[in-house]
């Protein structure tokens, strides 16, 4: 038999349509959800500004507060791991940066660098412990979450006698750092510069996932770590790198917040870790790993940003926000699972 002749076409197979290929995209459900949520709040809006540029500046600000960390968390989830310490690490990083400058007189730029290095260290410990012990990352990072929470309060109290770090606005180099991390763009709408950071992270993460070797490894270690190892993918290195990147994104948000608000509470960031995970899951990441996208997580963050702002603009009591998030989370997972199954062609 000639080596180059193709096997005859199998007549039992339906041609994959463009629709199926679209349905296979992990972020499709989130995109549809985002449109629905946007329409909902555009209609219920009582201030008349939700669907304007000002309104957009508002909800993208709220979304960037989640998205900056949610996108790396999504990458980590695709690789099959959780990071529950990402939220409280935002607080730790902000406090660390603030205390270095206000308490020890370190130059702000140097302090920012040290903060990133410090957070990278925390991320490395997370990843290294997970790989070393073989325990679920859920447990390891939960332990890290409580440890950091305790450290945040304890250290801040010892050093400042209060539960907050303040006065960052008065340290040298504040103005130059403020331009990079805390400024506003496009007057009079005043988009926060954090939105740019968020979009940039999403773009880079998408590029990495789809177009680089590392991205291939991320899907592989989450999809089947054993198979990945047998084909020569460095599983440990891939996962630890992602833990480090997640922690560094939390540091970025911590730095952004301490520069923007010039002070930070010791309890900052606690509870945020679930927002990141919700955004990733709403965006189509599988909890079991191996599937998802960065754009999806960014859309998930957008939905949450819209909900935070939209509920306030609609004049509803903001206490309802959490109910809304709960329903959105459940509905999104339901839709994603359904779409996913159809696209895999398994069960209908």
């Amino acid at each position: 038999m000639s080596a180059t002749t193709a096997a005859p076409k199998d007549e039992r197979l339906v041609k994959t349509s463009r629709l199926t290929r679209t349905l296979r995209r992990p972020e499709l459900g989130a995109l549809l959800g985002a449109l629905v949520v946007y329409a909902l709040f555009a209609v219920t809006d009582r201030t008349g500004s939700f669907a304007t540029i000002t309104g957009t500046a508002n909800w993208t600000d709220a979304a960037s507060q989640i998205g900056i960390v949610a996108v790396p968390v999504a990458l980590l989830m695709i690789a099959g791991e959780f990071d529950l310490s990402a939220g409280v690490l935002v607080g730790t990083s902000g406090l660390f940066c603030g205390l270095l400058t206000t308490n020890y007189g370190v130059n702000l730029w140097l302090a920012i660098l040290l903060t990133f290095a410090f957070a990278a260290g925390i991320g490395f410990i997370n990843g290294w412990l997970v790989m070393l012990t073989g325990l679920p990352s859920f447990i390891v990072t939960l332990a890290m979450f409580f440890s950091l929470r305790g450290i945040n309060l304890g250290v801040t109290k010892i050093l400042t006698d209060t539960v907050r770090v303040a006065g960052v606005g008065n340290v040298p180099s504040y103005d130059s750092a403020q331009k990079v991390f805390g400024s506003e763009l496009w007057a009079p709408y005043n988009f926060k510069v954090a939105v740019i950071w968020w979009l940039a992270i999403t773009a880079v993460a998408t590029l990495v996932l789809t177009k680089t070797r590392f991205g291939n490894w991320i899907y592989a270690v989450g999809g089947d770590a054993n198979a990945a190892r047998n084909t020569g993918v460095p599983v440990r290195r891939t996962k630890i790198t992602l833990f480090v990147l997640t922690a560094m994104s939390a540091a970025l948000l911590g730095v952004i917040n301490i520069i923007r608000f010039k002070s930070m509470q010791a309890g900052q960031g606690v509870g945020q870790e679930f927002y990141y995970i919700i955004a990733a899951v709403v965006g189509g990441c599988l909890l079991t790993g191996g599937f998802g996208s960065a754009i999806g997580a960014a859309i998930g963050a957008s939905i949450m940003g819209m909900a935070f702002i939209g509920i306030a603009f609609a004049g509803w009591n903001t206490d309802w926000t959490f109910l809304f998030l709960g329903v959105i989370l459940f509905a999104a997972v339901l839709v994603n699972t359904y779409i996913g199954r159809r696209a895999q062609g398994a069960r209908k």
């Binding site: 070797r213 198979a227 993918v233």
Partner: peptide
């Protein structure tokens, strides 16, 4: 177990661990 990752596409599996760049 074939060392393939079920959720990844055929070509990504083919080059897994030896990705051409």
């Amino acid at each position: 177990d074939l060392a393939t990752v079920p959720l990844m596409s055929v070509w990504r599996n083919f080059f897994l661990g030896n990705e051409p760049r």
